Amino acid sequence: MDFDWLRRACLALPGAYEDYPFGPETATFRVRIPERIAGPGAGKVFAFAGVDAVPPSVSLKCEPALVIPLRAAHPEITGAWHLDKKHWNGVRLDGALTAATVADLIEDSYDLVVASLPAAHRRALGWSGGDSPS
């Protein structure tokens, strides 16, 4: 797994896009939000990644109840640097975790973000994660 793999995995999700608000070294992956809700270019972040990090790594949102068990089971998963460690994990992509596991963690992060969007927007994204209240 490298940054290009990570980029493809994140951008494969409906409504996902990439931008660089913190400079060219940090990619931010977001779910697009309609302009009428949040203004032009707005989106909710589900992943941060260092473009040239060695080994590659990604910061992903996580259900708070799963943060500690994931970190205990996988040394490659730690508290995300500069983010709320109750809600964000840092995931080292050094090959110890399978691509399928990392893809699942990315999708889980995306699902947490999309679940917080209004129902109409979730439907517009074709999200099948459930219809939680908005």
Rank of each mutant, 00 (worst) to 15 (best):
D2T: 11
R8C: 10
L11Q: 13
A12D: 14
E18K: 03
Y20K: 08
F22S: 14
G23H: 06
P24D: 15
P24F: 05
T26K: 12
F29E: 09
F29D: 01
I33D: 01
I33F: 00
P34I: 06
E35I: 07
E35T: 15
I37M: 05
I37L: 13
G41L: 06
G41I: 07
A42T: 08
F46E: 04
F48M: 14
A49M: 05
G50E: 12
P55D: 10
P56F: 01
P56H: 06
S57F: 08
S59V: 07
K61V: 04
A65N: 09
L66T: 01
I68R: 12
A72K: 11
P75Q: 00
E76W: 02
I77R: 00
G79R: 12
A80W: 01
A80I: 04
D84C: 11
K85E: 03
H87V: 07
N89W: 05
G90L: 09
R92D: 01
R92C: 13
L93M: 15
D94H: 13
D94N: 15
D94M: 13
A96M: 13
L97M: 13
A99S: 12
A99K: 13
A100T: 14
T101S: 08
V102K: 00
V102N: 02
A103Y: 08
D104C: 04
Y110R: 04
V113A: 02
V114A: 01
S116D: 10
L125P: 07
D131C: 11
D131V: 15
S132A: 15
P133C: 10
P133S: 15
